[in-house]
Amino acid sequence: MTRRRAVLGGVVVLGLGGVLAFAIVHEATVSRAAAPRPVPPGAPRPALTAAEEAYAAALWPIHSEVKVSALRMTFGGLSYKMKEIDRATLRARVEAARQTYHKAALRIRALQPPPSLEKVHAEYAEAVHLYEQSAAEMGKVFKDGRDDHLLAAYPLSREAGEKMLRAGDVLWPGEYVPN
């Protein structure tokens, strides 16, 4: 009798132990599955869809031209302020940039972004518009000779540069690498 009780007790203890072990393993598994996985710094992000890739590829040649023009326009202002070029040379550079922005704006309008990139598309178009406005403001220097217009043009191109970076962050990750 005592021996049977002892065996029974052992079975019960073993059973309870099994249930407890199962519960611990089960809870741990469920918890792991439910918890959001921490994303390590520098982890790759989801790839663009095929439609997004196609849009990014279509915008790329426009982007390259806009970017070069933005830099040339800035360098025009720099060289002018450093008295390395005269007003006529600056005028030619700014006008060339303005035309590039204008043509780019028309080409961008013709692009059809996928729904997921409509916001990015709008932001990029706004960036080009701001660059065009900045060029127009710089152009006023040639009419009245006042350098104040360069100061007024500056925040426009600055904002354009920021918007372009924001759009580029989505479309061309890795456009700029550690330098």
């Binding site: 590829a57 600055r158 330098n179």
Partner: peptide, 24 residues
């Protein structure tokens, strides 16, 4: 896309150059 291949003007986004211009 994905890199600027170390061309001489690589690594100078318009915004960065613009900030230098702003100081000038």
């Amino acid at each position: 896309p994905g890199g600027c291949a170390r061309t001489p003007a690589c690594g100078y986004p318009p915004l960065t150059v613009n900030e230098i211009y702003g100081k000038v």
